[in-house]
């Protein structure tokens, strides 16, 4: 659990972060989002003391972070950044094993851990002896995430880790990260300026502007009731309806009746409402057949159901 109490950070006369308070529960995926220079990265780095806070207090599981020696503190917190920060003169395996080595684990334990992490992140074992410049951007970022997870920290800090990747790779890694989070139950603080990424990943979305927290809550809460025009426009303005639809699965909206086979174009139960809407537009139809993973029909989705449910609830 991470708690920030009235935390302020000044650089000279400039106030980068202005009296923010935030509480991230254990196992929660918290995304800090905002325009550049809003203080989100500064906030992130104050948590592992790469930047010291000027005022206020930051607690980790109830203990002020200044009670820990900084190096010890950082070894307990995973850290991944946009440029990956992999050491170019070290192999992938050595990069991943960095923190365990700092913690003086035994050689065989480090090796086992590295192998396990590479498997977890879908990196082929032969990558162990490659150097970072031999990897693609997506592979390098996987190594970066593996390195952050190496010593099995409870907390993971990620500063736009997927910012430099192409859209397809980025989306794949987002899905994998979300999946990883569900399995490993880490407390994650994630910084991004990409709203789609934020909406796709967050349990709790924290919108920052000019060093302050403007609004926080679940993605749905923020989409439904943005605190002001700034949050509304950041969330996509008129596109908000589609963004919200992207958070809801077809399975939650369909009517579980057995339809006549071959009646209409079909959509997967796992697809999102905006994908369903897109299919309706494309096929110029008001009804979709819903299928399960095995392509067996399980229900039916009408335009009315899609629209009605989207506005109420």
């Amino acid at each position: 659990m991470i708690e920030l109490f009235d935390v302020t950070r000044r650089f000279g006369d400039e106030t980068a972060v202005d009296r923010i308070s935030l509480r991230v529960e254990r196992g929660e995926f918290c995304v800090l989002v905002g325009t550049s220079g809003c203080g989100k990265s500064t906030t992130l780095r104050m948590i592992n003391r790469l930047i010291e806070h000027s005022e206020g207090e930051i607690h980790l599981d109830g203990q002020p972070i200044r009670d820990f020696p900084e190096d010890q503190l950082r070894r307990r917190i995973g850290y991944a950044i946009q440029s990956t920060g992999l050491f170019p003169h070290w192999t992938v395996a050595r990069n991943i094993g960095l923190v365990p080595r700092l913690l003086q684990w035994s050689g065989s334990r480090i090796q086992d851990r590295v192998e396990a992490l590479m498997a977890l992140l879908g990196l082929p074992p032969e990558f162990a002896h490659k150097y970072p410049h031999q990897l693609s951007g997506g592979q390098a970022q996987r190594v970066g995430v593996a390195r952050a997870l190496a010593a099995d920290p409870d907390i993971l800090l990620m500063d736009e880790p997927f910012g430099a990747l192409d859209p397809i790779t980025r989306q794949t890694l987002q899905v994998e990260l979300r999946d990883l989070q569900d399995r490993l139950d880490k407390t994650i603080v994630f910084v991004t300026h990409d709203m789609d990424e934020a909406l796709a990943l967050a349990d709790r979305l924290v919108v920052m502007h000019e060093g302050r927290i403007v609004q926080q809550g679940s993605p749905i809460e923020l989409l439904r009731a943005p605190a002001d025009d700034f949050v509304a426009s950041l969330l996509g303005g008129d596109d908000r309806g589609l963004k919200e639809a992207a958070l809801v699965r077809v399975g939650e909206r369909m009517q579980p009746i057995t339809p006549k086979v071959g009646e209409a174009p079909w959509v997967s139960r796992e697809a999102t409402l905006n994908q369903a809407l897109s299919l309706m537009l494309w096929h110029q139809t008001r009804h979709l057949l819903v299928v399960d993973d095995a392509d067996a029909p399980v229900g039916r989705l009408s335009l009315d159901a899609l629209l009605q449910k989207a506005h109420h609830e």
Partner: peptide
Amino acid sequence: DPGVIESARGMGMSRLQVFFQV
């Protein structure tokens, strides 16, 4: 590369370790 140095610090390497190993 400042990103490499930042991540080295962020991983919990001491100043001496960052200098001599990175």
